[in-house]
């Protein structure tokens, strides 16, 4: 393509003007600019405090803990979600009902409530015993508060809650795969487990990954709820600092900055995974990769 492709009968028209596009763009830019200026120039926000705590070691450690909490809870939640989804799709009515009940319960109560509940587990079960139920045989016993530390309680709360949401995402993904795929797999002598692992789930991933990206980012932000059970993640740490120096807004800016950095970084793996599991589904893109490799003619 070059400018020489212009032919004599091409239409040379004066483009339609769009004055309102300009007006609205200028207006919105002005309003935004004023807002940013008001923040930067505000005497009520102490920028020295923001700068001081932005790269404070305690803050960075708390941000790291937030990332670890997110990854651990997300991993446990996803594994549970796959199990729940398979249970809900199984033909065993008991498993179906249990899975639906689980999903209903954990989606139906606030996450904050669940976090606090797991934090209070020691009140319901003061000790944890390992033995034979309804007998006096006990091999191992420990105080609940020592096993279910606030960190463990927090991870359990986040994972169990995530499992309920992710289960429906996984189930939707599995249902999106054409029935003919499982049939073809069966006809080749594949077991249902093998079919799920090698044929159905890899294709379901294409549908599962975009909403799971959402879940990942939600999870990262929801870790801030663990403040109520005294897990020193990012939000808890910054509010602890601000309760001492009374610079609430400044530390919210610090926390917000790191949350933004983390959610931005965590969205990179998503596009990689989408490409990986999208292979074979985008003919144009795949064609580029194979261009010139052993392809002669069209049919």
């Amino acid at each position: 393509m070059s400018e020489s492709t212009t032919k004599q009968d091409d239409i040379v028209a004066i483009p339609l003007r769009h004055p309102w596009r300009w007006v609205s763009a200028v207006f919105i830019t002005l309003v935004l600019g004023l807002f940013v200026y008001s923040l930067v120039s505000s005497p009520n926000i102490n920028h020295d405090i923001v700068n001081k705590y932005l790269f404070n070691q305690k803050v960075i450690e708390a941000a790291l803990l937030t990332v670890i909490l997110t990854i651990v809870s997300m991993t446990i939640g996803t594994v549970l979600a796959i199990i729940l989804a398979i249970m809900k799709l199984s033909s065993n009515p008991v498993l179906k009902v249990i899975s639906s009940g689980y999903i209903g319960f954990f989606r139906g109560t606030p996450l904050l409530l669940q976090v606090v509940f797991w934090g209070y587990l020691g009140i319901i079960y003061p000790t944890i015993d390992l033995g034979i139920p309804f007998t006096d045989m006990i091999w191992w016993s420990e105080k609940t508060s020592l096993v279910f530390t606030s960190l463990v309680a927090g991870i359990i709360a986040l994972s169990l809650n995530e499992a309920a949401y992710a289960a429906e995402i996984v189930r939707a993904g599995i249902l999106s795969v054409d029935q003919g795929q499982a049939e073809a797999a069966k006809s080749l002598g594949m077991s249902s487990g093998y079919t799920l692992r090698r044929i159905v789930l890899p294709q379901a991933m294409r549908v599962i990954i975009p909403p799971m990206g959402n879940e990942f980012i939600s999870m990262l932000k929801n870790t801030s709820l663990l403040q109520v059970v005294a897990v020193m993640e990012l939000y808890a740490r910054t509010s602890q600092i601000s309760s001492q120096n009374l610079a609430q807004v400044e530390l919210l800016v610090v926390a917000g900055f790191w949350y933004l950095v983390m959610t931005t970084i965590l969205s990179f793996p998503q596009s990689y995974l989408e490409k990986k599991f999208g292979r074979g589904f985008n003919p144009a893109e795949a064609q580029k990769r194979w261009l010139g490799i052993g392809s002669k003619g069209n049919v």
């Binding site: 054409d178 003919g180 795929q181 049939e183 073809a184 797999a185 069966k186 006809s187 080749l188 002598g189 594949m190 077991s191 249902s192 044929i199 890899p202 294709q203 599991f277 292979r279 074979g280 589904f281």
Partner: peptide, 24 residues
Amino acid sequence: PSAVAKQRSEIGMVFQRFNLFPHL
């Protein structure tokens, strides 16, 4: 199921809609 799968593995089937695995 494993015995049925074994029987099936010895019988080839070709479908109207091909049913190739699109990710492979």
